[in-house]
Design a protein around this nucleic acid. Structure first.
Lengths: 256, 256
DNA sequence: GGTTGTGAACAAATTCACAGCG
DNA sequence: CGCTGTGAATTTGTTCACAACC
């Protein structure tokens, strides 16, 4: 009912609903119930209903939601109307993978340019798009109306690239480098980091094998305070070059 | 103080602290204050203190936290002691990028195997590791003590691969496919999806350009309920092949 | 009957503010 | 005096349960 403000948690779930709805549509479904949508998305049915109610959704009591309508409403809410041009900066392994990534263009996100600092990479063609130099960034963003910048550079270059992207005029940044970027408040940044994800998995794995901790010993299986300085098992490592992945769906150890 | 249960939100932030701490250590810092850590991680100082207090941390009042100690405590909490073997299933563009990804091994995550269904890819070497057939999965996981499986296959194969991984004995899965996986409750899944991330960015971008909505028109700039069925601007698309990216740090439109 | 939409209860996370200690 | 650790207040998010409705 209220279009005033959509909670962040709700926004984060909308793309998931959209994906399920598209599959349902392909399967020929006319309507879906909140329960169906919930199961397929891995969330609670009440959450689905509350989320959709924030979009002023038009479910039909006793029936469910009209699939086509819902796809339109969610797409509209997310601003997925028309194309959105994306520029990828940093053509290493990750940048290349992103450039080739098919699903990229499938939701209206078009790779308008690939950019790299390294002049040896300039001119190379990846997935039909040519790599251009960093110096062309401003013109690219302006001329091709790019709104989203993807940072796939080493960590050390990330802030510099972010500054360049902001200067060039993008309004959103997807950051794959393991660095926290400082940007003007008018720019939205999302970070995705593979190391982070693996480390979180590692935690939950440890919790499981350790059974329910907080049982006998009050401290984790590491010396509590040996007072020592440098790390023992883990290599110190300075900064890491490229990074990937964190966020979405989780299934913790508990709960069915 | 309480080792009983570490909140999920805290766990999600720990890898970020670790990264900042390692940089600080490299820069020669002996101690860090919660404020320093907070700024570098993009969070509030009170949160840092509360998070660290959950690890039974040993900060020094009036001084801060000892960098070396903190690295050990956080590493220990996350279970980053010793190596963890990872198997990557699906050697497409994404799988290849992940296999080459340097930062992967830097935190004790070792790529123990690459697996693909396609016999033409079997035998190929990527980053020094040879691609093996799916049929070898069980033996690989058992023999090489693999605990984490990474799914980098097309969406359609994701559930099947997940079942195979679970059957082979992994306890954690990092899923890059755009599908919600059903697994036994003893297995932890995290999903990372590039499309999701872009769509969320798209939403916040739209909110910004639209200014503060909930102003004049009560509905988004899309026809509220035209009753029509098929989408107009966005291509329907069935299922997408490979996926990437969501989770971590965000800077919304508001807040400085 | 079945399902939505939502108020109210509950739980989790964040932020404030300050006592307590080095 | 500065900074940690934490109780209390606040905000945000989830779940329950049921009336309203098709």
């Amino acid at each position: 009912m209220d279009n005033g403000r959509i909670p962040e948690a709700t926004v984060a779930r909308l793309p998931g609903y959209l994906q399920v709805l598209r599959q349902a549509a392909d399967a020929g479904a006319q309507t879906v119930s909140s329960l169906t949508l919930a199961k397929a998305s891995g969330v609670n049915a009440a959450i689905v209903r509350k989320d959709l109610s924030h979009l002023g959704s038009h479910g039909i009591r006793g029936v469910g939601y009209h699939v086509g309508d819902l796809v339109e409403v969610i797409s509209g809410t997310l601003g997925l109307t028309g194309d959105r041009a994306v520029v990828i900066v940093g053509i290493g392994n990750l940048g290349r993978a992103l450039a080739c990534y098919d699903g990229f263009g499938q939701r209206g996100f078009r790779i308008a340019a690939l950019v790299d600092h390294d002049s040896r990479k300039v001119g190379e063609k990846i997935g039909g798009v040519e790599v251009e130099p960093m110096t062309a960034l401003h013109r690219i963003v302006t001329d091709r109306e790019v709104t989203i910048g993807v940072i796939a550079t080493p960590t050390t270059a990330a802030q510099q690239v972010a500054d360049a992207l902001v200067g060039a005029g993008v309004s959103s940044i997807l950051n794959f480098a393991a660095a926290h970027l400082t940007v003007p408040e008018a720019v939205t940044v999302r970070r995705v980091d593979l190391s982070t994800e693996l480390q979180i998995l590692s935690f939950y794995e440890q919790v499981r094998v350790g059974g329910s901790l907080a049982e006998s010993s009050p401290a984790p299986p590491l010396a509590p305070r040996t007072g020592g300085a440098s790390g023992a098992g883990v290599t110190p490592a300075s900064t890491q070059p490229e990074d990937l992945a964190p966020v979405a769906a989780v299934r913790l150890g508990r709960r069915g």
